[in-house]
Nucleic acid binder design. Structure first.
Length: 388
RNA sequence: GUGGGUGUAGCCCAGAGGCCUAAGGCGUCAGGUUGUGGCCCUGAAGAUCGAGGGUUCGAAUCCCUCCACCCACC
C-alpha cells in the first residue's frame, strides 16, 4: 500500500493525499517551520486553527538542545511539544553548512562545532536517522550535503555523490515503520547532475523525494529551470518536496512545476519584521500609512488577526515592539500560506489551476524589478571567480 | 542676586582653530530576509552648531554681550 495517493493532475500541477502516522495530508501542502519544536510565537492550538496539517522541525537544533534523550524520555517530539499533527524533521545537513562555518565533511560524516557553545560534534548518516527515529517524526530526511551556490562543478559533483552514498546508508539504517524516510536530490545548478541525482535516488525506492540545494540566492529563473528539470524525472507516484521555498508566488510557481510539499521560514521570519502577505502583494505594516487604518490587514482574510484587529492596532504593536505583534503577524502570514495552498488545491481538483495562477499573479505585486536585478547581479558577481 | 556648569537634528551626544560639505546611536521614512537567532543588513530625510557682535586668511571650536536650562550659595 502506498503512502501517497495522487488524486489528479492539472498540467504538471498535482493534487494528492499523503498518509502519515499523524493524519492524512492533502497536497500540495505548505509546512510551517518550527525548528526548535515550536512554530515561533504560536501554541499548537493556534497552528491547528491555521489548518496546517504538518509542520517542520529540525534535527540539528533539537540534537544540540535539548538533545534526543530528553525528547525520547518525554514521549517523543509530538508529545514533547503537544502537537498531534504530522511532523517532518530535516536531517540537519543544511544547518551544518549554513549555520556553522567550522564544519568538515568526510565520507564517514560531518564534523561541526555547535553554534551555541562551540562544542564539537560528529554526525553520520546513521546517526541522523537514529536521531530522527528518536524524535519520532512522521517524515525523516536523509543526511545530505548541499553545495554553496558559488561551488565549482567538481565540488558540486563530489557533494552530490556523497549525498547519494549517504542516502543508501540512511535507508539501510532506517527501521521505524511508522516513519517515512525521504531522499534529497542535489546536483547544484547543473542539469545533467540534477538528472543524475534523480535517477540514482529513484532507483533506491524511497517513499518520497526532496529537491534540495535551491533558492540559495540564484536568480529565480534558474531555480525554476532546476525544479522543472528535476520533477520531470522524479517518479510520479511519489511525493515531491521542494525544500526551503518560498514566497507566496513561489508556491504557485513550484506547484505548477509538479511540487507537492514545501516549507519555508520566509512567512514567519518576515512576519516578525512587519512584512505581511495579502492577495494584492506584500505590505510592510510599519509603513506610516497603516498607523490609522481601521480596516484589518486584509478584509477577505479569515485569520484570527484579521477577524479581530485593525491594521492600526497591529501597526501600534510593531512600533511599540510588543510581543503580540510577532504573534499576530505570524498567524496572518501562515494562514495566508496555508489558505493559498488550499485554494491552489481546489483549483487543481477542478481543473482550473492555470486560470487561478494567472489571476493570482496579476493581483499579487511581486518584489520590485530593481531589487530582483540587483540580487541577480550580486549572485553573478559572487560566482565570477569561478568563471574567470 | 552671586558663583559654577550646560546649550550641536524630534531625543542622547562626538567634535576643543583648517582633513566639518558637522560624526555616531535612538527615533522617523523606506527597502531586504527563502531546509529560522524576535537577530541583522541596506538606503533616505532631518542641523542657518542657543542669539547677536568681535578676533582671525579661516570659528561649532577663541573673546564679549544677551537668552534659556541645571547645580550650589544667599
Amino acid at each position: 500500500m502506498s503512502n501517497f495517493n495522487l488524486i489528479t493532475t492539472n498540467g504538471a500541477a498535482r493534487a494528492g493525499e499523503l498518509t502519515t502516522a499523524h493524519g492524512i495530508i492533502p497536497t500540495p501542502v505548505f509546512m510551517p517551520v518550527g525548528s526548535q519544536a515550536t512554530v515561533k510565537t504560536l501554541v499548537p492550538d493556534e497552528i491547528r486553527a491555521l489548518e496546517a496539517p504538518i509542520i517542520l522541525s529540525n534535527t540539528y537544533h533539537l540534537y544540540l538542545r535539548p538533545g534526543v534523550d530528553i525528547i525520547k524520555k518525554l514521549g517523543g517530539l509530538h508529545r514533547f511539544m503537544d502537537w498531534n499533527g504530522a511532523i517532518l524533521t530535516d536531517s540537519g545537513g543544511y544547518q551544518v553548512f549554513s549555520l556553522s562555518a567550522l564544519s568538515t565533511v568526510s565520507d564517514e560524516g560531518v564534523a561541526f562545532r555547535s553554534h551555541i557553545d562551540g562544542s564539537s560534534h560528529f554526525i553520520t548518516p546513521e546517526k541522523a536517522v537514529a536521531l530522527q527515529e528518536g524524535f519520532g517524526s512522521d517524515i525523516a530526511m536523509v543526511l545530505d550535503e548541499p553545495s554553496p551556490s558559488d561551488a565549482p562543478s567538481g565540488k558540486v559533483r563530489e557533494a552530490m555523490e556523497r549525498t547519494h552514498r549517504w542516502a543508501e546508508r540512511c535507508l539501510t539504517a532506517h527501521q521505524r515503520n511508522d516513519q517515512q524516510l525521504f531522499a534529497i536530490v542535489q546536483g547544484g545548478f547543473d542539469r545533467s547532475m540534477r538528472r543524475c541525482s534523480v535517477e540514482f535516488l529513484s532507483s533506491l525506492d524511497f517513499p518520497g523525494y526532496a529537491i534540495g540545494g535551491l533558492s540559495l540566492g540564484e536568480p529565480k529563473e534558474l531555480t525554476w529551470e532546476m525544479v522543472r528539470h528535476t520533477t520531470q524525472y522524479l517518479p510520479s507516484r511519489k511525493p515531491r518536496y521542494l525544500m526551503g521555498v518560498g514566497s507566496p508566488e513561489d508556491l504557485i510557481e513550484a506547484v505548477g512545476l509538479g511540487v507537492d510539499m514545501m516549507d519555508c521560514v520566509l512567512p514567519t521570519r518576515v512576519a516578525r519584521n512587519g512584512a505581511l502577505f495579502t492577495r494584492r502583494g506584500r505590505i510592510n505594516i510599519n509603513n506610516a500609512a497603516f498607523r490609522e487604518q481601521g480596516a484589518p490587514i486584509e478584509e477577505s482574510c479569515d485569520c484570527y488577526t484579521c477577524t479581530h484587529f485593525s491594521a492600526a492596532y497591529v501597526s501600534h504593536l510593531f512600533h511599540a515592539q510588543e510581543l503580540l505583534a510577532y504573534r499576530l503577524a505570524t498567524i496572518h502570514n501562515l494562514r495566508f500560506m496555508v489558505r493559498l495552498m488550499q485554494d491552489i488545491r481546489t483549483a487543481i481538483l477542478s481543473g482550473a489551476f492555470d486560470s487561478f495562477r494567472q489571476q493570482f499573479m496579476s493581483d499579487y505585486r511581486i518584489t520590485d524589478e530593481e531589487v530582483r536585478i540587483a540580487q541577480k547581479q550580486k549572485w553573478i558577481k559572487a560566482r565570477k571567480p569561478e568563471i574567470d
